[in-house]
Design a protein around this nucleic acid. Structure first.
Length: 285
DNA sequence: TTCCTGTGCG
DNA sequence: CGCACAGGAA
């Protein structure tokens, strides 16, 4: 029997009255209905498309994902199609979304779904989380949006809603204090509708207040992009996609950056599976 | 400058 | 846990 570490969080133990829960739900639904968002992945219940959208949305803003999503599922309309596609084609479409290794993970996930799950997107959290690029949030989101199941999960919009609604005057709020409320207030009769409303409400809150999620202990600031290693990685992948078969020296001559640093990053990206090296030449395959 | 429907690694 | 990861837009 493991002893629980000290817990200084009394609030999570305080249940809401039924009337408060109802009032909260009513507010969420009302604000969401007054601020609807028309998003391409809301017009489908195809688990594959939901999965694609969730991976894309992990760290990229909705507006930028929308157009790319349409293009992506047009080119790779099913799990089987994505699994069978060439990685170079997948990453070429992915360009502009950022975080290329998520594109790689998505393709690897499609391959795993074909080999391990008969081409059907799994409908349990455990199985979903076994797929590359799918963690607790994305698994929960797929459960809710693709399978309409009452999964409990938190992402930044949901976090904003619960902090704004129940933790106004606290800072350094931990997700473990929010999760019980997410579970308690969830509209279990229509999880898909509920979570969409919750996220729409969160978007409205962020528009009208300083981001409530900043009071979360999980809220991280991004380091500047300009001059970063991320910028270099992006340039390296772009170069190799555009000119398959470049040697390391070719890449160095095409990309601005320190020679050793470029070689180090090429090696790292090869290790991650974003590119391969054959006879000293780099390819995406 | 700041934001963004997180995941995986060390 | 702390950190890296991409990129465009406001």
């Amino acid at each position: 029997m493991k002893k629980k570490p000290t817990d200084h969080s009394p609030i999570s133990a305080v249940p809401l009255a039924e009337a408060e829960i109802e009032a909260f739900r009513a507010t969420v639904y009302a604000v969401a209905q007054a601020n609807p968002r028309c998003l391409p992945w809301r017009e489908t219940a195809d688990p594959y498309r939901i999965m694609v959208s969730e991976i894309m949305l992990q760290q990229t803003q909705v507006d930028r994902v929308a157009a790319k999503f349409v293009e992506f599922v047009r080119q790779f309309p099913s799990v089987a199609a994505l699994a069978a596609a060439k990685l170079a084609d997948v990453l070429t479409v992915w360009q502009g979304l950022g975080y290329n290794r998520r594109g790689l993970a998505l393709k690897r996930a499609a391959e795993a779904i074909v080999t391990d799950f008969g081409g059907i997107v799994p409908a349990t959290r455990k199985e979903l989380e076994s797929l590359p690029g799918i963690g607790p949030y994305t698994a929960g989101a797929i459960m809710a949006f693709a399978h309409d199941r009452p999964a409990v999960f938190i992402e930044t919009n949901i976090r904003s809603v619960f902090i704004h609604s129940f933790f106004q005057d606290r800072d350094r709020i931990h997700d473990r204090d929010l999760l019980p409320l997410v579970e308690l207030t969830m509209d279990r009769s229509q999880p898909r509708l509920w979570y969409n409303a919750l996220m729409d409400y969160g978007v409205v809150l962020k528009r009208e207040h300083p981001n409530p999620s900043r009071n979360s202990i999980h809220h991280l600031r991004q380091s500047p992009f300009e001059g970063s290693n991320r910028q270099l990685r992006s340039a390296l992948l772009k170069a190799v996609l555009a000119h398959p078969g470049l040697s390391a020296d070719d890449v160095v001559s095409k990309v601005t950056g320190d020679h050793e640093n470029i070689v180090r990053n090429l090696t790292q990206m090869e290790k991650e599976g974003l590119m391969v090296r054959k006879r000293g030449k780099y390819f995406v395959a």
